[in-house]
């Protein structure tokens, strides 16, 4: 026990010293800096520089351009981490969803908080959907994107579960299976957008890279940078839309699973205990 405490103390003090030394030795440059770093300068300079179409990403938002274009593979693998975390949650709670009994169906109105809270929740819910979709679908123009939009959308199921009940979501066809399908559709959209340049390249007999957005030297395939005079940022809009669906549906799924009553799981555990003996 004493050895463990000593090790913990060494870890804490060691990390304190390491971080302090890294900052004092200016491993991250001066903080706060006054000039842009070289890497940031490159990204900010080229993100909407139409003079050099081999380097641009057709998006005025440098952050989204980095997330899905310049460092797109980072984000692709982050999405796979997200996928694994959510699928692990579903695997732990692999149960048949409890159905509503007849009495509960009759007493539909008696669930949840007062009628004022319910009505306000519905109004706020509509606003949340609009705002989160706006955050996600304007990701290539303004600060925002699929991750932020999806996280904003995930507030809605929590509000609904708190104010009404899980059944209020299920009445609107938001249940485990439909959310699994939505999330899979989002991930499928990301996968399709990643190999879309290859498909276009095959059709037009051009070489192309995986996850290519705009033209690159030797691979003259690009996704549309504007649609009806609106900047679309090529693959950025498609990837943001898919990520919005995947993140929103993934979080909704876990919140639905977390809202299952404890007595339900107690019953399952007890039945397992008796079946093994």
């Amino acid at each position: 026990m004493r050895a463990k405490t000593a090790v913990s103390l060494i870890v804490i003090i060691g990390s304190l010293l390491a971080i302090s030394y890294a900052i004092a030795a200016q491993a991250t440059g001066t903080i706060p800096q006054t000039d842009l770093r070289k890497l940031a300068d490159f990204y900010a300079q080229n993100t909407l520089n139409s003079n050099d179409k081999f380097l641009w990403s057709a998006s005025p938002e440098a952050v989204t351009a980095i997330v899905w274009d310049y460092r797109g593979f980072d984000t692709l693998f982050e999405t796979s981490v997200f996928f694994l975390a959510i699928i692990a949650c579903v695997a732990i709670f692999e149960v048949e969803m409890p159905r509503r009994s007849k009495n509960e169906k009759l007493a539909k109105q008696s669930h949840g908080l007062s009628i004022i809270v319910k009505v306000v929740t519905k109004i706020v819910g509509l606003i949340i959907i609009c705002v989160s979709a706006s955050i996600a679908l304007h990701g290539q123009l303004t600060p925002g994107g699929g991750f932020q939009g999806g996280a904003a959308l995930a507030v809605l199921p929590i509000l609904f579960i708190m104010a009404m009940s899980r059944f209020a979501l299920e009445d609107r066809r938001v249940n485990r299976n439909s959310m699994l399908i939505m999330r899979s559709l989002g991930l499928l959209g990301i996968g399709t957008t990643v190999i879309l340049p290859l498909i276009i390249g095959l059709a037009t007999h051009n070489p192309a890279y995986i996850m290519q957005n705009q033209i690159k030297p030797g691979a003259l395939v690009s996704l549309p940078s504007s649609l009806a005079d609106r900047m679309m940022g090529g693959s950025l809009w498609l990837l943001n839309l898919s990520e919005y669906l995947a993140v929103g549906a993934g979080f909704t799924l876990t919140f639905i699973l977390l809202s299952l009553p404890e007595s339900f799981f107690k019953k399952i555990l007890e039945s397992e205990k008796y079946s093994t003996h």
Binding site: V63, D74, G150, V247
Partner: peptide, 14 residues
């Protein structure tokens, strides 16, 4: 600098 922001925004959701 947009690079740390890009890293942080995915890190928060993940």
């Amino acid at each position: 600098d947009p690079v740390p922001q890009a890293l942080v925004l995915t890190a928060i959701v993940i």
